[in-house]
Design a protein around this nucleic acid. Structure first.
Lengths: 191, 191
DNA sequence: GTCTATACAGCGATAGAC
DNA sequence: GTCTATCGCTGTATAGAC
């Protein structure tokens, strides 16, 4: 197995485990069993848990950048772009998972500092993109929203992150994220 | 020291630790140091970590019931009541903490089943109270909101829980919760 | 009620063979 | 790259003295 292939498998397994259980409730043993190697071998790819966590969150940030660039290049309306963004979270909800960033943010005080920084980057990137898209939508006459786009962005991201956590805890069958989307667009259509 | 007094001190310390670090990142050693006893003595009050966690969350649910009853008995407007509810979260934000329920909900998959149930109770109680208060506010002409009160409730609670987590992760100086309140009332005033 | 002493499992991590 | 073997530490929990 090439080094990179194994490293990616480790990141995949770690991401699932952190989204399911949190940063402090997964072990090298879990990881080793999922990937099919021994715990000692993990240290060849990542010297410690901190470096694995940082690499994972950096990959997650890269994926976000790629996803947002894809949405921006789609040429759709700003409303449709926001719906695509929310769909990223709906898909996570459908898997019964929470956002990697949200999971790590909950455990923030126990994270190594570089990982805290990567989490912050994810949040800021998301907020900036939402705010920019809301602003464009108002400019193009898609929304009537008279408040600050940055406020709407903070409210949307907060509700999505919180919504994923509450959705799993409620264990309900209906989609909480669909409701959050409805309420958000109602807000944007307020004058 | 009476049994009850020590038990309460243990719950107090555990609550701070869980809100800071999460359920899986605090230990009996932390608890013992905070309260000033030995780890073995904790088992006299709570046979295991699971029973301590459940007792803590049940106390938290009791406090919520009390707080909501106090707000309901205040005779203020529904808008003022909702502001009082949001203030419970603003105060938590000001302490740099997150909600005990939100912290536990993030760790859901690793919690003993009875604790999961208590978390769910907290969420449902909160949503029902918000929905009921929004409904009364619409009836009394305080809001113009034409959507379902339960949807507004889900959106508010999600944004408050997510907002506390994001606020701490951003490490910002300005209050995110104040922004969330502003956006929420803008939504309620939409037709 | 709280203590000392201890059991025992799990953790991340390292050394060195292959 | 992955292995076996092992280290030191920390976790929850128990037994029994006081």
């Amino acid at each position: 197995m090439s080094s990179e292939a194994t490293a990616n498998k480790l990141l995949d397994a770690a991401q699932v485990l952190i989204q399911e259980r949190g940063y402090n409730a997964f072990s090298y043993k879990d990881l080793a069993e999922d990937v099919g190697i021994r715990t000692a071998s993990i240290h060849y790819h990542f010297p410690g848990k901190a470096s694995l966590g940082l690499a994972l969150m950096e990959r997650y940030n890269d994926e976000l950048r790629l996803a947002l660039a894809g949405i921006d290049g789609s040429g759709r309306t700003n409303k449709a772009k926001l719906k695509s963004f929310i769909k990223l979270y709906s898909d996570t909800e459908a898997r019964g998972a929470i956002c990697l960033c949200g999971s790590l943010a909950s455990d923030r005080e126990t994270l190594p500092e570089p990982l805290q920084g990567a989490v912050k980057t994810y949040i800021e990137s998301s907020e900036q993109w939402i705010a920019s898209t809301v602003k464009d939508g108002v400019r193009d006459g898609e929304f009537a929203y008279a408040g600050r786009p940055a406020d709407a962005a903070a409210a949307l991201l907060s509700s999505l992150q919180g919504g994923l956590i509450l959705s799993r805890a409620r264990g309900g069958t209906q989609s909480l994220l669909a409701t959050l989307q409805r309420v958000f667009f109602r807000t944007l259509e307020s004058a």
